[in-house]
């Protein structure tokens, strides 16, 4: 067996595995679907470049808060709202027990609340309802607020359901305990994000006291990315009435040291 034969065979086997993994439920491969759907962009060029276009559709994505925000998952919700605002289509948002989304806040994040079908499920029902919604026809995205641990099996089911239907599933992971390590256990989701608040810069350089809040600053850590490298960015969140814009800013923190080129300081202040 020559070397080229072996390479060919490897390529063939890889192709077979890829076909198996991609699932047979994808209909009509000749209808331009073999290339996969357009990824779900984040409207932040640096991050989208890192993700090769954006978050893969037809996959599950986990978003986790940090510290005290783990219980409330405010920034994860804000992040997901931003992502939903970039893409279109109907969304099912499943709250566990309580439903505390504020529609005006969604509007500020760029999401029309009319797109949302809201569900409040019991804590034990969330996964089942989520899976049903992901499998349903005509849903662009499903957002589920999950309290506590997510087993590998359960996440695999969700991931497979999403792959089968093409709907994108966002899991907002919450925990009553701050810095709960169980949220970071391995799952089958395509990406895992941690969104944490950072102290924002002064709205006007050198302004005294605590007058005024400027653009919010987050650190976004891509902790896990199947088929890609993790990454870490610091972004500023402009607060525009219609569409929220995020801009990568140069970070004074070491966390921002990633492969992605960061924009200059002019970019960040142009947004706020």
């Amino acid at each position: 067996m020559t070397r080229t034969d072996r390479t060919d065979m490897l390529a063939r086997l890889r192709g077979q595995i890829a076909r198996m993994e991609r699932h047979t439920s994808r209909l009509a491969p000749d209808a331009g679907w073999d290339a996969g759907p357009i990824p779900w962009g984040l409207a932040v060029p640096e991050i989208d470049r890192h993700l090769q276009g954006g978050l893969p559709r037809g996959a599950a994505h986990e978003v986790i808060g940090q510290g005290g925000d783990m219980a409330l998952a405010v920034l994860p919700a804000r992040f997901v709202a931003h992502v939903l605002g970039v893409g279109g289509g109907p969304v099912v948002w499943i709250g566990a027990g309580l439903f505390d989304l504020h529609a005006d806040g969604l509007v500020r994040a760029g999401v029309d609340p009319g797109r949302l079908l809201c569900v409040t499920a019991g804590r034990d029902d969330v996964l089942a309802v989520c899976e049903d919604s992901v499998r349903a026809c005509g849903v662009a995205a499903v957002v589920a607020e999950l309290e506590g641990a997510l087993s590998l099996t359960a996440s695999r089911r969700l991931q497979l359901a999403a792959e089968g239907s093409g709907a994108t599933c966002f899991l907002i992971r919450r925990s009553r305990r701050p810095n709960d390590r169980t949220l970071f256990q391995p799952t089958a989701s395509a990406t895992r994000w941690r969104i944490a608040a950072l102290p924002s810069p002064a709205p006007i350089a050198g302004s005294p006291g605590m007058r005024g809040v400027g653009a919010a600053r987050w650190s976004m850590d891509l902790l896990r990315y199947r088929g890609g490298r993790p990454g870490s960015w610091i972004v500023e969140v402009g607060d525009a009435p219609d569409r929220l814009v995020m801009a990568a800013v140069p970070a004074g923190r070491a966390a921002a040291a990633t492969a992605c080129p960061v924009a200059g300081p002019a970019a960040c202040h142009a947004v706020a």
Partner: peptide
């Protein structure tokens, strides 16, 4: 399902 047909008017 999965055929890429989804729009705001999709039937839920």
């Amino acid at each position: 399902m999965g055929s890429g047909h989804r729009g705001d008017d999709a039937d839920l």
